[in-house]
């Protein structure tokens, strides 16, 4: 198993104390979700919750329904049964737009950037929901049309700075190497100032150094901005290192749910997941 050790043990212990204070009430609850495509059951009766301020990992073998779960949470798939409770309110027939407006951002397993636009413009799209200028103000570059652009540009520059990508701000993202594209995608999601950040395999296909960078960014985002993070990841050492609680899915069912420690020692998990081929 590939390893990306992020924090030495002593620091980890200090962190867990600090984190216990940071983690708050339930932000999002998934209740009895079932999702079918034709005859195929992608998710069956899955329930778990995500608390404010935590880093929540979703793991499971390929085809376990992890990405489908994220797609349900941000409104891309409509589950046949069950409901999503977001900040105490049940959401029905939610579209991705509603999720974005409600404060849920995400990144994709296969990078979903706007290939024809520069890094800066890609991240600026993340600010679209914060902008109010009317059509004419934009067309004539007056009033809010101009002032908002400059205000948001300044905001985006801070994100560029935070993620250490200022040098590529004017480069079309299609020309960037894979690792940087992943970072730009994270930047775009952060630009939305989300309350919940969904990351679908943020470290897939990265080398060790890139993985360590990405881990650091995720932890920094979580600690500095208090952003709640739910992530799918295959690298177990990363999951065990950075997440507060872990959900394990297998064949679309909830297999286990608990702290990394609990999950690691769960016989069912060892049987179904850690036991096979991933060792």
């Amino acid at each position: 198993m590939a390893t990306a050790t992020v924090t030495p043990p002593r620091e980890a212990a200090e962190r867990s104390v600090r984190r216990a204070r940071q983690i708050g009430e339930v932000l999002l609850a998934v209740e009895n979700i079932s999702l079918r495509f034709g005859g195929v059951r992608a998710l069956s009766n899955v329930s778990f919750d995500i608390r404010r301020g935590e880093i929540r990992a979703i793991i499971g073998p390929n085809g376990a329904g992890k990405s489908s779960m994220l797609n349900v949470i941000n409104g891309f798939y409509q589950p046949q049964e069950g409901r999503i409770i977001w900040k105490g309110r049940a959401l029905s027939r939610m579209r991705p737009y509603d999720a974005a407006k409600g404060g849920i951002a995400r990144t994709f397993q296969n990078i979903a950037l706007f290939k024809g636009m520069s890094t800066l413009d890609n991240i600026m799209t993340g600010r679209i929901l914060k902008m109010r200028a009317s059509f004419f103000e934009q067309a004539l570059w007056i009033g809010r049309g101009k002032s908002e652009e400059l205000r948001e540009r300044a905001f985006v520059e801070r994100i560029l700075d935070f993620l250490e990508i200022t040098h590529i701000r004017h480069v079309p993202v299609g020309k960037l190497p894979y690792g940087l594209q992943k970072r730009v995608e994270l930047a775009r999601a952060l630009a939305m100032e989300p309350e919940l950040l969904l990351l679908d395999e943020p470290m897939a296909g990265m080398n060790l150094e890139e993985k360590e960078d990405m881990c650091r960014f995720i932890l920094d985002v979580n600690e500095e901005f208090g952003t709640t993070v739910a992530l799918i990841e295959h690298d177990m050492s990363v999951v065990m290192d950075i997440s507060d609680r872990v959900v394990v899915l297998d064949y679309g069912r909830l297999l286990a749910d608990g702290t990394p420690e609990e999950v690691r020692n769960d016989p069912a998990v060892i049987e179904a997941y850690l036991g096979v081929s991933h060792g």
């Binding site: 991705p96 974005a100 706007f114 636009m117 799209t125 679209i128 067309a139 652009e149 939305m192």
Partner: peptide, 29 residues
């Protein structure tokens, strides 16, 4: 007029739709 539009929010939302409409919807366009 066109140049101003394409360097503003509205132009960016057009380009986002052009490049990947699914991702555009997910960031709130």
């Amino acid at each position: 007029f066109a140049k101003n539009l394409v360097r503003s929010r509205i132009g960016r939302s057009w380009m986002a739709i052009r490049d990947m409409d699914i991702a555009a919807e997910i960031i709130g366009i």
